[in-house]
Design a protein around this nucleic acid. Structure first.
Lengths: 354, 354
DNA sequence: GTTCAAAATGTAAAAGCTTAGATTTTCGTC
DNA sequence: GACGAAAATCTAAGCTTTTACATTTTGAAC
């Protein structure tokens, strides 16, 4: 490429045909003689012609790009999520525009607006968006799929993790392994995932260890907050038999606190996390946790969105839930190696109204 | 937003001014009465007017988007890299289009071409691109910054990690800690980073343990390949005193093999990695490794690119190198806690031609 | 109340592409 | 060789914005 970019006119002139024919050939619209096609393709190649995306989008209204709005790119959760999205986007011939690190309603709104006209659809994972927000900030027809969201809307499909079932399965396992005194380290209050996990934990305790009080400590999903919770727990009398952290990073922090205090896990105290991030299996002891198939979550969300991109798709909005399995390693003292509860994708009918 | 998107004409009509005035107001070009400005802004807000990016790009030739072409999104290295890029992009008001998972020259070429016209500049990290490739596939004026690349070109700035110095520092530490018999687990032959790390290792051995042979085992950066290398090493007589893996994931696999064999690390054998991924500090024992400031790498690369976006910037292409520190934890038996060799960013003058 | 420069505003071209509709070519028939 | 339908090809409008240039308005000076 040594001169300025060739345009469709250059190709047309050089091939001695009209721009319409060039367009038809390059877009495979048919109605063009094989001979003409050959010439056009040759000239296009020779001139290194690549259609201008801006001009094309302007007229077709399509960008072949989808946007992913995420709260942050930090940590394995988001990296895996993006990976799943990216892989699926590639399959569908879609480009991926990512926007992250907006930790407030205005920042999220700005991110969403900045994407208007740049994308054909959006995947949104944010605490700050609710149905009203979306209706105010998004064009009517823009396909959107929400992730990890409490929104119930007739307009927006939602894809959630089955946090509740995952938490219930883990608590049940803990209790059945003989640990009735459970402490739960919660995630940030604003996180939908964290809320659901806590609810599941409470529900399971009520069911499987009725009457036994559940200790709940505040956490914010960071390793540091797990460490603090672990220290706090060390001083408690009686000490709980098991600790269930709302995510793996906090479990890791908690484990650090226990180790520093000379406590043996799982001998002295059992420990479990949530997410099954890569690190978990390499800890000593390997961490029992609830496995979330994060990349799958991204892939499924993108596929749902890709469906919506086709205007013929009239599938009504629904809330889907991606099941999670518990994976029992050594940190909670049960027999390791088991993977319980075959994962499943549940689909609830679209709730009426909002 | 309940009707179809408003255009600048709608705003002009509603505000009873010309489109030119609307454009001037919204772009802050001045030359417009405060009164008119007020009206225009009000109408724009009322109509939820957002300029169409495609039309704007078509005429300005700018997309305010940069593309990141990466081999894969898998693993912490790339997630951190993207994070650094994204953060910096946000600061510069740039959008980020990611394209990954192309594991061949054609796939990389396709990715690069598909981005043409969609981005104002590109960040490329790929084994498959060399200067010739770029000149053939990229528009002349498109700013590009290469990461982890052996390319030496007058046209493309390159930003590398100082793999060599990092490896040298680690080997030196190992030898000085009394481990002269070193085994190196190499990365994939095609990886520039892996090559440099191996070279550094060999150079350091020649210097600090002259005459002592270096055992080199093949690896491919995966945990599994590290595990295999570890097993292989178990059978060697004499067993090396230290193992230096070309990345942390292989060190982790190697550690697993040693643990399974009942070997004590660092008591029976010392172990070190490269990258300092998050997991490393949570291993038992915590892994000594060479710390690569990955997010910084992304940030610096983006900043270089952002500079290039400004046509006034005439900074010549150069090869920059981001220094790395060794962080000594417990896995290599030295005194833990030290961080050696203050990191630095070296900048070599642009090499002539190529 | 003119005059004139400066400020404000308006007009229209341009960007590169797709596509509806107009026009021309092709080719089998008679 | 004239006819007409089908196929191929072309013309030109239109997508939305920015911006150079033209025109109008403003307001100070006389």
């Amino acid at each position: 490429m040594t001169t300025k970019n060739a345009t469709i006119k250059d190709v047309a002139r050089e091939a001695k045909v009209s721009v319409a024919s060039v367009s038809r050939v390059l877009n495979g619209l048919g109605g063009v003689t094989p001979a003409t096609q050959k010439i056009v393709r040759e000239v296009a190649t020779r001139l290194h012609y690549v259609p201008d995306n801006a001009a094309r989008s302007l007229i077709t209204g399509r960008t072949h790009t989808i946007g992913a709005v995420l709260p942050d790119l930090y940590g394995e959760f988001f990296s895996e999520l993006i990976r799943g999205i990216d892989l699926a986007a590639r399959v569908h011939g879609l480009h991926l525009l990512v926007s992250s690190s907006h930790d407030g309603a205005e920042a999220a709104a700005a991110a969403v607006c900045a994407m208007r006209g740049r994308v054909d659809g959006m995947l949104i994972l944010s605490e700050y968006v609710d149905a009203a927000f979306l209706e105010h900030n998004l064009p009517d027809k823009l396909p959107v799929v929400l992730l990890d969201s409490p929104v119930k809307s007739a307009r927006y499909p939602v894809l959630n993790i089955d946090n509740r079932a995952g938490a219930i399965a883990m608590v049940r396992h803990l209790v059945e392994a003989g640990h009735q005194q459970v402490a739960f380290i919660s995630g940030p209050k604003t996180s939908f995932n964290a809320q659901q996990r806590e609810k599941g934990c409470r529900a399971a305790m009520a069911k499987h260890a009725p009457g036994v009080p559940l200790t709940v400590l505040d956490g914010n999903f960071s390793e540091e907050s797990g460490y603090r919770a672990g220290q706090e727990l060390l001083g408690r009398k009686p000490r709980p038999q098991a600790v269930f952290a709302a995510n793996d990073m906090m479990a890791i922090g908690c484990l650090r606190a226990f180790k520093e205090a000379g406590l043996n896990v799982p001998g002295d105290i059992a420990l479990a996390g949530f997410d099954d991030i890569l690190i978990s299996r390499y800890l000593t002891p390997p961490l029992s946790t609830v496995q979330v198939r994060i990349a799958d979550l991204g892939r499924i969300a993108l596929e749902r969105l890709a469906g919506l991109l086709n205007p013929a798709d009239k599938t009504p909005a629904s809330v889907e839930t991606l099941g999670c399995d518990i994976v029992i390693r050594e940190s909670c003292g049960g027999k390791a190696g088991a993977t319980v509860a075959p994962s499943k994708l549940r689909k609830s009918p679209r709730p009426l109204r909002t």
